[in-house]
Amino acid sequence: MNALSPVTQAAKPPRVWHRFTPAERIGRSMVYVLSAIAVVWSLRTIEVIPEFLYDAPEQTADLFRRMWPFDWAFYPEQVHDALIETFHIATLGTLLALVLALPLAFLAARNFTRNPALNWLAQFIFVSSRSVNSLIWALLFVAIFGPGALAGVMSIAFRSIGFIGKLFSEALEEAQKGPVEALTATGAPRAMILVKGYWPQVEPAFWSVALLRWDINIRESAVLGLVGAGGIGVALDASLNNLYWDQVGLILAVIFSVVVVTEIVTSWLRARLI
């Protein structure tokens, strides 16, 4: 089986092999140990009330019993209009975010804007936008504009700027230099370079990011109503507070169907546009 002569094997000490260099091993071990500590620490301090847990299967069964049959009459009364409003909030919010994020993305792309201060400013706006959850944005905008769809549109838009801007500026930075340099060499004005040099290269990425975010925003806009920012969440909040679980069940089913339809539409649009 082993064709090597025993002499060579005896002459050399057996060679050992380790998968990682010591530095790699230390790095990985540190991540593992720290993760383990974090999990144990979280498990020890997080409060679990055993009585509630024993009760859980029964409570869950009870939940579904109360939900079914749905209160179908509730749909034309309140759900339908709220659903349409949710759709408008998500779509308008996404459109507004696109309008706001587009120029910022060009500012953030280091190959288009050669000014580190401007790059940094745009990046900072993106990070702040992304770090704040859309529900928190909704709280702020409800305080400013009062309850209603306007606050919803603004919160969706402000949460989405960072997402769209970050992904789109990354796409811009990956754009090939060739066409841009060719246009620059012809002495084309800067606006022309943008429209004919960059845009054709990044347009698919732009629409793909927009669709992705629109899909997410449909889901997000469904909960904004919990803090008063309009849409189907308002109806959900009311039904929850009144413990009308048959209405809650109906609303959840409606949200589920809308989300499924949205996924189908976005994947269809993506296949056609990109």
Binding site: L4, R15, W17
Partner: peptide
């Protein structure tokens, strides 16, 4: 350990040498 030793030997035998192992 036998497998590892044989793997090193084979890397030599196919003409690559120990430096290639990692």
């Amino acid at each position: 350990a036998d497998d590892v030793a044989r793997a090193f030997d084979l890397i030599d035998a196919v003409g690559l040498g120990e430096d290639f192992a990692t």
